[in-house]
Design a binder for these strands. Sequence first.
RNA 1: CGGGGUGUUGUGUAAUGGUAGCGCGCUUGGUUUGGGACCAAGUAGUCAGAGUUCGAGUCUCUGCACCCCGACCA
Length: 409
Amino acid sequence: MKQSQLFTKTQKDAPKDEVSVNAQLLIRAGFVDKLMAGVYTFLPLGLRVMKKIENIIREEINAIGGQEIFMPTLQPKENWLKTGRWDTMDDLYKVKDASGKEFALGPTHEEIVVPLAQKYINSYRDFPFYAYQFQNKFRMELRAKSGILRGREFMMKDLYSFHLSEDDFNAYYEKAAKAYEKIFQRTGIGEKTYKTFASGGSFSKYSHEYQTVTPAGEDLIHICNQCGLAINEEIKGEVDVCPSCKGADFRKEKAIEVGNIFNLKNKYTQPFDFKIKDEKGEEKEVIMGCYGLGLSRLMGTIVEVFHDDKGIIWPESVAPFKVHLISLGKNDEAEKIYNDLIKKSVEVLFDDREETAGKKFADSDLIGIPYRIVVSEKSLQSGGVEIKKRNQKETEIINQNSIIEKLNA
RNA sequence: CGGGGUGUUGUGUAAUGGUAGCGCGCUUGGUUUGGGACCAAGUAGUCAGAGUUCGAGUCUCUGCACCCCGACCA
């Protein structure tokens, strides 16, 4: 994409109200725009990052048998009354239509996916069954905060698994945990993300969260120095030795919850009376798990973890583009290289604007694309183009014909 | 919802109760071209409503919005 055609612009100053690093950088660089507290528009650059994250998650969830669906946001009150959450879930958005009929705006989708499964999954032969979606969730947060880390409307992947036995559920729960670990590895925050034993909130007594260590975190976790499992501060006291290795030596860190997995047992299948006859003709209760992962939060977390005083430093796997091609002064060579990279399916943002070098470099650092390639009279005289990684200081001059080779190295 | 803070052009800021000014951006013209260039000319604003006052960005009240701490949560 040519930067001259990108409708967003970078800003030198962040809006003064924004304190969180993710909001400051994402807004300044033109990834997101704030509409109101906790509600953001994803601009072209931001949407590209979101889609990158989405695709990584999709691949990993497909790999554990997930079938992608898309459920409605607007949901019947009746289903929420059935599970009891209409009156007990205080962050549920309720809307009324002109006739006075009430609806929920989905904060999570058990109330929809359970009746859905019940309708189509009607033999023990259909089990286990896994469905997931990427969806805008609505939660009436008392206080939206921390930029895109805690919104009132946010993008989430939610996976639901249905089982006829505890053993089958447990096996899948572990599989999902592994998939989550892969997702965090692939999106770059693996090293800083800890599986954390935590409260289950409105879903279950306990759950596992995935917590990424960052000063911007809202939670306090106690990481076991022996095995690396963490315990959320909220259940410290109930649980004071590591549930995994029984160790009692912990270090305390601030962290942000990027995902979680729950054992729901029959909590949401029972209200809908979802039962299935097994191969012996015996009626069995369906049990389930749910597995959430906030994409917009993950994106904000990545920014919190990977930035410097000049801007964002995207991990290559989620960067909006792989290459930021910058032409200094007029030269046809940059255009040629751009077309060549496109032909070779390299994702490239071409800064073809008539701006000074300083401005282009500053923008490039702010946007944070992994590879910066500069084409100028100076570089051409020295033998080609200058290439630099965003997370490194050194630049290197390489011949324009060896760019692809260099990028793949 | 409790506590604290802030609302001035797209954005960042200034203005004893007395002419709303500046930087960035944007527009036009010219000069520049390897780390947020320069010159000139333009563009656009006091959150909303009421009140006090000869006069309100500034004081008072009400409302709204945003940010931070807390309670609650992916």
